[in-house]
Simulated assay, not measured.
Amino acid sequence: MTAPKPGGGAAAAARAAAAGPRTVLITGVSRGLGRALALELARRGHAVVGCGRSAEHLRSLEAEITSPSRHFLTVADVRSDSSVAELAKAAVERKQVPDVIVNNAGTINKNNKTWNVPAEDFDMVVDTNIKGTANVLRHFVPLMIEKRHGIIVNLSSGWGRSAAAEVAPYCASKWAIEGLTRSLAKELPPGLAAIALSPGVVNTDMLTSCFGSSAALYQTTETWAPKAATMILSLSLDDNGASLTV
């Protein structure tokens, strides 16, 4: 496993630029980190295949994104295996099989003691954060194997490497992403790599859910996105199995 490397810097920027335009699949693209990352990658000339559950939010993104005709933004729910299967089929038909996958779609439980978290809230976290990631891998990794190249980025969290009170379902899901990614990295054939990436602490709706008004003290998605884009685009096969942080 490689040592952590910074999210920015001239060397990372050079590596990112050297690879040329790529097609990047981002789940949960309609808001938060996914939306900001999509806008940044499009600004840099990359093609985005993006999915989210809100058609309204996707229309808003499409209205703002650079060169909208280059991208494929569509409603899909990663919790549904059949929905992800349709997304993969559409990507193949459009000749937009991704070079990079960013499994970003995620949710968090409302702050609560573990034994007081309603079953439906726990299910939502597991179904989105763990099963949703697995659904994407199930349908897109074979396409990457066929192309014989691809970088898979599964978004983890600082709470996937530590723990906090009242967010046990979320912590459990992100610890699961760390383990899933390391296992996947051992299974991938030559030409592919899987990385668990913590975005760091960013002011999003999810952070507000945990921190309340204190979330405003942290970096915005707009500040985060250029650093994240540079780091993701500079990832290589040498990073296979790594746990990194933007």
Rank of each mutant, 00 (worst) to 15 (best):
G179H: 01
I130C: 13
S80T: 09
G20T: 11
R182P: 02
E166D: 15
K174P: 08
C171M: 00
A38C: 01
S183Y: 02
L207I: 11
K89T: 14
A165G: 06
R43I: 12
A164E: 00
L143F: 05
T133L: 12
I101S: 12
S83T: 14
E56S: 15
T230F: 01
T66K: 09
L188G: 07
D99Q: 14
P142N: 06
V136Y: 08
P169F: 12
R59A: 14
A225G: 01
N111D: 07
R70Y: 06
L61D: 06
S183P: 00
N129V: 05
W224A: 03
G8A: 01
L87M: 13
L58M: 12
V75R: 03
L73K: 00
G50V: 05
V117N: 01
P199W: 04
I151N: 00
R53W: 15
P6G: 06
V246R: 04
V141H: 07
T2D: 04
Y218G: 07
A36D: 12
N135S: 08
I65R: 07
N109A: 13
K186E: 09
A176V: 06
T74C: 11
P98N: 11
R59G: 12
K95T: 14
R43N: 11
K131L: 11
E166A: 15
A13E: 15
E64T: 05
F122L: 15
G8T: 02
A47V: 04
Q96L: 07
I152H: 03
L207G: 02
L39A: 03
V92M: 10
V48N: 03
H71K: 14
L217A: 07
N129R: 08
R148L: 13
T2G: 01
N112W: 07
R44N: 03
E56M: 04
S67Y: 01
P169I: 15
A193Q: 00
G132W: 13
L197D: 06
K5T: 13
R31V: 02
T221D: 02
A176P: 06
A228G: 01
A18H: 10
K186G: 10
A229S: 00
S83A: 15
R15L: 03
A164G: 04
C171F: 04
K186W: 04
K5Q: 12
S60W: 07
V167C: 05
A85Q: 11
L73I: 06
E93W: 01
W115Q: 14
L237S: 09
V92T: 12
L180H: 10
A19F: 04
N104M: 06
A168V: 14
S214Q: 12
S69R: 02
S198E: 12
W159S: 10
V102S: 13
N240H: 00
A91G: 08
S54W: 05
A91P: 07
L73G: 04
S67K: 04
A11D: 11
A193H: 01
G20W: 08
D81V: 13
A36R: 07
L217M: 05
F211A: 15
L197T: 06
N129A: 12
A216D: 04
A47R: 11
A228Q: 02
N203K: 09
T220P: 08
T2A: 07
A229M: 00
T107I: 15
A215C: 08
E64L: 13
S183D: 02
L41C: 03
S162W: 06
S173I: 09
T221N: 14
